[in-house]
Write a protein that binds this DNA or RNA. Structure first.
Length: 834
RNA sequence: GCCCGCGUGGCGGAAUUGGUAGACGCAAGGGACUUAAAAUCCCUCAGAGGCAACUCUAUGCCGGUUCGAUUCCGGCCGCGGGCACCA
């Protein structure tokens, strides 16, 4: 028995044993109930960071506990390996994206393995390998065949220097994030996935996800953005032409004072053809990026087309038609009717162009004021609205929709904020879109037999733009249809496509097909998915869509991929600044009698805010160095301690040292003993800990589970040797094993227990020890605590009351005055109202 | 602007459906062991008053409901997040 637990030796030893025994490999055919625990797979950036360690430690605890509880657990790991950073590395350092990515994967795999995670490495995958993305190409063609993929012209953010499309997130203040060049809006042919086909399903499905955070469900709900209202046609006066508008407030139609269309509305473009002033206005509106935050302060601008439309409810009324900068082509129909009295934007516009502001809604029972600078959007009753007068807003909406439908000039309809998912990227390091463009046959799918379409290796990054596009031969193929020379699609798929089905491939990875329906469906949905809240919308919505799409075409039996979701907080660290104002590395700082000094200069250090670890603030702590010093278990323990998992965790040197001390404390308990006899107090503490800790982990409240293990450890340390104590030590090790797996195995072996502790069944609390025959009852006077007393559990009210009144402290406080009222809460408290 | 969430000791945080506020950890202070250090162990630790028994004040602020409020309601203040000319 060594006096100290030595993680440097133990970690590697047990990791080797688990690997040799294939302890954590999932068996598709096991008779046990299956469960699937998954953490969001990492991008192979080069090194694991503390956020990964926290994320994967949480998942690991769940996976290990479920396994001990008798589940067949699938807990895999892989690499989200396509994406921009690899191309940036290629451009900056001349390395091939594939080599860079694969080297990073190798390094990070080693780091994860040193943390001792209970992962099934036999199922490891990397999305950048043809044996993954080739199947993705097959799925893309399946969705295409099912009519869920289409191609259309679409406006994109185009960086004129880097010759590439930028995602909205990569446009900062209207400029490309790399080049700094003003971004242009360009029309390009792009592939789209019909996520809007599933808008209703995705929204309704949120209601079934009761093990998701409310916050995430709400964010998705808002993102999908369902609006119900009326779509109707404005007939242009003295013309054959017309255009459609959408409104959520058909009740206010009598309050209309103008109509407005987007600068890129087909009508606006047509009018601009022979109106240079309008053409200039349209160009000016479109030049201002929509991504800019300046939108808020941007002034409403309009251009009077001189046209007017006929009011649909009163053919004698005419409304002027403007082209307006605040009307967006890609929402609704790209045209509106303006009701200034009850919409703030319309009011701002009307005031600027001196349009009438007729009020049509008034609060019930009030004489309406004239509208000033603020539109009235509250509840009320319709006025100045002919046949609608006196109706409330909801009845008004229904009445107008019914009349529009009866009259054939409009329909009640639903409009979504959600747009179809554009998946084309003008990049090299992604899944090639398996399409061949033929001058004669159009866009033709690559024949299945020719999949995968493999990325060429011989590409150069010395000039900006897409290397696939300028590759001398790769794109040259014959049309599968007519055999004439044709050209491959050189765009690749958005990396979010890669992460939309990787969890299915983990569950089933046959050679020839993307997955086996029955095998995959047996594991899915993921019981517990864990990752950062930054993926609350995009990744989680895309994965939900992709799964539903596969279900619709009969490839899988589940609609929702993730039954349980947990979003963990970030790992933060204090920031340090030298007197010169430069950020300082934690390693460059030393503590001298409570004061922080810069190591190099001995000058005092300014301690800044606790912030997310980032290179720019130099407050990053590298997990590798910490593991080398303290071992995997101390790091894991620290990651679970103190902070609730959904909140941020502040890394500190003192914290990791505390974790290290605890690891050693538990180790010192692992001494074989043949003591006999029962210790009832310890047994009670032990079984309560089993019950409470198991419940804590079920709720992912790891910080509470940690606190309970501290308490149990103290209780065991204090207890005299007994059979109960020996049992308590073994059970303590089992309870701690999911968090401290290496220490637990080492101690289990030291206690000469058979087999691996990883294979031991999870302890079950004996109900005998969970009930008490006596309870502590609080004694209050006017709600203030005076004393407590111990009584048999379930004592009758009058007995409790009598005992309370007999209590000396109560008697002294009452000073002979009889209480006016006595409140007895059985087994809890007595409150005397004096 | 709209929609969410959160404010508890020096710090991270505990506290079943309203029922003994501050579990557990960190930091700090004191002590034991040691030639010394490391390691370990013990004690104190919300604030104020008091020799003490004890008393008072405390869960962002102001009110309300209640025998009793960290918990429920209303109004403020502060912090964080999401969305944003969405018709």
């Amino acid at each position: 028995m060594q006096p100290r637990f030595d993680p440097q030796a133990a970690d590697a030893r047990w990791q080797a044993v688990w690997s040799e025994q294939r302890t954590f490999e999932a068996d598709d055919t096991a008779p046990r109930p299956k469960t699937y625990i998954l953490e969001m797979f990492p991008y192979p950036s080069g090194r694991i960071h503390m956020g990964h360690v926290r994320n994967y430690t949480m998942g690991d605890v769940i996976a290990r506990v479920r396994r001990a509880q008798g589940f067949e657990v699938l807990h895999p790991m892989g690499w989200d390996a396509f994406g921009m950073p690899a191309e940036n590395a290629a451009m900056e350092r001349g390395v091939h994206p594939g080599n860079w990515t694969r080297a990073n994967i190798a390094a990070m795999r080693g780091q994860l393995q040193r943390l001792g995670f209970a992962l099934d490495w036999s199922r490891e995958l990397a999305t950048c390998e043809p044996d993954y993305y080739g199947h993705e190409q097959a799925l893309f063609l399946d969705l295409l065949a099912a009519g869920l993929v289409y191609r259309k012209q679409s406006a994109v953010n185009w960086d004129p220097v880097d010759h590439t499309v930028l995602a909205n997130e990569q446009v900062i203040d209207g400029k490309g994030w790399r080049s700094g060049a003003p971004v242009e809006r360009r029309q390009l042919s792009q592939w789209f996935l019909k996520i809007t086909d599933f808008a209703d399903d995705l929204l309704a499905g949120l209601g079934t996800l009761d093990a998701w955070p409310d916050k995430v469900r709400l964010m998705q709900e808002n993102w999908i953005g369902k609006s119900q209202g009326l779509r109707f046609t404005f007939q242009i006066a003295d013309s054959e032409r017309s255009f459609d508008v959408f409104t959520t407030r058909p009740d206010t139609l009598f309050g209309a004072s103008f109509a407005a269309i987007a600068p890129d509305h087909p009508l606006a473009r047509a009018l601009a053809a022979d109106n240079p002033a309008l053409a200039a206005f349209n160009t000016e509106c479109l030049a201002t990026g929509t991504a800019a935050a300046a939108v808020e302060t941007q002034e409403k601008m309009g251009f009077d087309t001189g046209l007017s439309v006929i009011h649909p409810l009163d053919a004698s009324r005419r409304l002027p038609v403007f082209v307006a900068n605040f009307v967006l082509m890609d929402y609704g129909t790209g045209a509106i009717f303006g009701c200034p009295a009850h919409d703030q934007r319309d009011l701002d516009f009307a005031r600027k162009y001196q349009l009438p502001v007729p009020r049509v809604v008034a609060p019930a029972g009030e004489t309406p004021d004239a509208i000033g600078d603020e539109a009235y959007t509250g509840p009320g009753v319709l006025i100045n609205s002919g046949f609608l007068d006196g109706l409330d807003i909801d009845s008004g909406k229904r009445t107008v929709i019914a009349r529009a439908e009866a009259g054939g000039w409009g329909d009640g309809t639903t409009v979504w904020r959600l747009r179809d998912w554009g998946v084309s990227r003008q990049r090299y390091w992604g899944t090639p879109i398996p399409i061949i463009h033929c001058e004669f046959c159009g866009a033709i799918p690559v024949p299945r037999a020719d999949l995968p379409v493999i990325l060429p290796d011989d590409v150069s990054f010395d000039v900006p733009g897409n290397p696939l596009d300028r590759h001398p031969t790769w794109a040259n193929v014959d049309c599968p249809n007519c055999r004439r020379p044709a050209r491959r699609e050189t765009d690749t798929l958005d990396t979010f496509v890669n992460s939309s089905w990787y969890f299915i491939r983990f569950a089933s990875a046959p050679l020839e097909t993307p997955f086996d329906r029955r095998v995959a469906s047996a594991w899915l949905p993921v019981a517990q998915y864990i990752g950062g809240v930054e993926h609350a919308i995009l990744h989680l919505l895309y994965a939900r869509f992709w799964t539903r799409a596969l279900q619709r075409i009969g490839m899988i039996d589940v609609a929702e991929p993730f039954a349980g979701l947990f979003t963990q907080g970030m790992v933060t660290h204090e920031t340090y600044r030298a007197v010169t104002g430069e950020w300082l590395d934690p390693q460059a700082v030393e503590r001298d009698s409570g004061i922080l000094l810069e190591r190099a200069t001995g000058l005092p250090v300014d301690v800044g805010r606790v912030e997310k670890m980032s290179k720019s603030k130099k407050n990053v702590v590298d997990p590798d160095a910490i593991i080398a010093t303290y071992g995997a278990d101390a790091v894991r323990w620290f990651m679970l301690s103190d902070s609730p998992p959904e909140r941020d965790l502040a890394w500190s040197e003192a914290g990791i040292e505390g974790a290290w001390r605890f690891v050693q404390r538990v180790w010192r308990l692992a001494v074989p003993s043949d003591a006999s006899g029962e210790d009832a107090d310890l047994a009670r503490a032990l079984h309560r800990t089993i019950a409470a800790l198991t419940a804590d982990i079920d709720r992912l409240q790891f910080n509470k589970a940690v606190a309970r293990l501290y308490e149990l450890t103290s209780a065991v340390e204090r207890a005299a040797p007994s059979a109960t104590r020996s049992e308590a030590v073994r059970t303590l090790l089992q309870l701690a094993a999911p968090m401290l797996p290496h220490l637990a195995e080492e101690a289990w072996a030291a206690l000469e227990q058979p087999g691996l502790i990883a294979d031991a069944r999870w302890p079950v609390a004996d109900p005998r020890w969970l009930t008490d025959d006596s309870v502590t009852i609080a004694l209050q006077i006017n709600g203030r605590l005076k004393d407590t007393m111990v009584l048999p559990k379930g004592a009758a009210r009058d007995v409790v009351e009598a005992a309370a009144l007999a209590n000396p402290k109560v008697q002294r406080a009452l000073d002979g005055i009889a209480p006016r009222k006595v409140i007895v809460v059985p087994d809890r408290l007595v409150n005397l109202v004096a």
